[in-house]
């Protein structure tokens, strides 16, 4: 490596500060989630697991007044809703996104560019616009706001993400393998199931993971179309922050960050498998 110029050194220092800016705030939450000071959560007062114990309803050394999550049930219920919504929406969106990606990659037809646009628009549409459009629609059409409306709402934009990921995978595939399958007498369905699907599977799984994490994290759209009993985790946390900063939020936030890192690592693992096959 050649010797660094002063400008190059300045650039390195600047970049280090950039990554610090990106990660320090989040790391701060993790550190202070173990802080035992219940009054000012930013003044270090000793190490504790109490906030973690408190959110799971376990016995803590805290007095009743400093405990904040009035019911662990609410929190766990929100988590359960988030998981149900994310799993169902991912399932539907993966099916819709994959079938559309296969159709657009393998067939030439008149509405080709229309479908590309149709799947592009929900992704760039600002969350709040999509959220209130769905709210007006659901209320007008007589839907009861709840998990089912959130699932439908999430599918409208998750389909696009799956579509993008699977399309990228299909673009890197040799179409001759499918032609060979057809030459050997397989019909469309057999070719899809035995040739296309195994080859695009890493893309499908990657797309599914991406949509699962986006669904788990979605706040704005869910905020508008969730019912009273169907709060998801991000909406629940927004409510907590709005009511006041309490140490339990740090613990919940830390657990969510941990979860995100695990899923992200899994996603990147699949992506690396994705690229190493060709």
């Amino acid at each position: 490596m050649k010797k660094q110029t002063p400008l190059g050194r300045l650039l390195s220092i600047y970049s280090v500060f950039f990554f610090l800016f990106l990660y320090a705030p989040v790391i701060l939450i993790v550190i202070y989630s173990f802080n035992s000071n219940p009054i000012n959560i930013m003044i270090w007062d000793g190490f504790t697991f109490d906030w973690y114990r408190s959110i799971f309803g376990l016995a803590t050394s805290l007095t009743d007044t400093s405990s904040y999550v009035d019911s662990t049930d609410q929190l766990l219920n929100a988590l359960l809703n988030s998981l149900i919504v994310a799993a169902s929406a991912t399932l539907v969106a993966t099916f819709l996104g994959t079938s559309t990606a296969v159709a657009l990659a393998r067939y030439r037809f008149k509405l080709h560019s229309f479908y590309r646009l149709l799947l592009f628009v929900p992704m760039v549409m600002p969350d709040i616009v999509l959220g209130i459009a769905l709210l007006i629609f659901f209320v007008g059409a007589g839907f009861t706001l709840g998990n089912s409306t959130i699932i439908i709402g999430h599918c409208t934009f998750l389909t696009s993400y799956v579509f993008i990921v699977v399309s990228a995978r299909l673009a890197g595939m040799n179409p001759l393998t499918e032609a060979a399958s057809a030459d050997l007498g397989a019909n469309e369905w057999q070719t899809f199931r035995r040739v296309t699907l195994p080859l695009i599977l890493p893309g499908v799984i990657g797309g599914a993971l991406l949509s699962f994490i986006i669904s788990m994290d979605d706040l704005v759209i869910t905020y508008f179309i969730s019912g009273v009993d169907s709060t998801t985790l991000p909406v629940f946390i927004l409510g907590m922050i709005r009511r006041g900063i309490k140490p339990e939020i740090n613990a919940i936030a830390t657990l969510m960050l941990l979860f995100s890192v695990v899923i992200a690592s899994a996603g990147i693992y699949f992506k690396s498998k994705n690229t190493s096959t060709h």
Binding site: D217, I241, L257, S260
Partner: peptide, 8 residues
């Protein structure tokens, strides 16, 4: 991208 926006 993967970390929750509310948390950040």
């Amino acid at each position: 991208f993967f970390a929750s926006m509310v948390v950040r």
